[in-house]
Design a protein around this nucleic acid. Structure first.
Lengths: 196, 196
DNA sequence: CCTACCGATCGGTAGG
DNA sequence: CCTACCGATCGGTAGG
């Protein structure tokens, strides 16, 4: 009995979090009200608080989930057997697929994280900086091995990550090319831009 | 006398608009309050309304200024003598420089325009779409002439524009490379990514 | 999960 | 340019 109740609570909370991700993506965190969210879920605003603690908690959960997802993946990339270009392509394809399939959460985590409250804001910021350093290290390795042009690695990271975040425009576009074609086009442009 | 007063009003309004651009960039449009803005300018909130009509007008002015700036430039690019790669490089360098030198306004126009009110929202959206079509046409021309890889032009546009918007991270970074080095690195990666 | 309601803050106005 | 203030809306709570 207790377990079934706990399961129901969990999935209810997940439904609310998913709806919050969609809402924060559409309107932005500050412009999205808890009344908007309640409408989306189909309850009164006050009822949300039986499942969540606060609006801030919703943003926090979204950002932490996304951050951990990318954080886990880059360790797999680092341990992957292969040259630098292969590793970077692996990372790039993961980013593209996450942006395609898990659009709203990834978008919110990327664009709305500055509305996190302390200490989560500082934690997120630090992890983000570490994550980018890891990508820069992959690029540096590729420059040393002669696979990649002698460019500024942090600048290359910034181009890569932001290019991928442009997929939000793809989601909204009228005549979408397929997700596969999008991925191949992005990889072609970015990898050839880096490759010597 | 009347002229001096008019001049003072204009520059006062410009001071407020500049401060608003900085504030909207830092906090986001919705999270930035008119009391915040008044503090930044050094007056009481009510006094702002002797110079501006509304908070919405401030965002509108910022977005229209930026949009017109880019709109005028792309006509110069289209009329420029040269091959497709040269035109695209010219456009890319202009975007990079605007993002470096006119950071706050460009950033706000890029990230906060969805908070515009009608009919400005629709106008902005339409102009933005037309602008991107013009860039896609430049890329298509380069593909036809054999200068550029056979890629999906709208995807290439989206990568280019978003890569440039990543310069906001450069502004905040601790050990900044020079603006010139940033520009050369970006141009190298993007142009070689496109070039056949 | 709802009704009823709270204190805080918002954009903006009146009047001087 | 300021003091004083407004109606609306916000995130969230009490109590059932």
């Amino acid at each position: 009995m207790a377990r079934i109740k706990a399961d129901n609570d969990l999935s209810r909370k997940e439904i609310i979090t998913q709806a919050a991700a969609a809402l924060f993506q559409e309107k932005g965190f500050k412009a999205a009200s808890m009344r908007d969210l309640a409408d989306k879920v189909g309850v009164e605003a006050a009822s949300l608080y039986n499942h969540i603690k606060s609006k801030a908690e919703l943003l926090h959960n979204i950002c932490v989930n996304v951050a951990n997802n990318f954080w886990n993946h880059i360790h797999a990339v680092e341990n992957h057997q292969g040259n630098a270009i292969e590793k970077i392509e692996m990372l790039l394809r993961f980013h593209i697929r996450e942006m395609v399939n898990n659009y709203q959460e990834v978008y919110v985590s990327d664009r709305e994280w500055k509305h996190l409250t302390e200490p989560y804001l500082s934690n997120f910021h630090t992890q983000r900086r570490e994550y980018r350093k890891k990508i820069a290290a992959l690029i540096e390795a590729g420059i040393k091995s002669g696979e990649i042009r002698p460019i500024d690695a942090p600048t290359a990271v910034l181009i890569m990550l932001h290019a991928v975040s442009g997929i939000d425009s793809w989601h909204r576009s009228k005549q979408k090319i397929s997700a596969e074609a999008l991925e191949e086009n992005m990889v072609t442009i970015m990898i050839n831009g880096l490759r010597k």
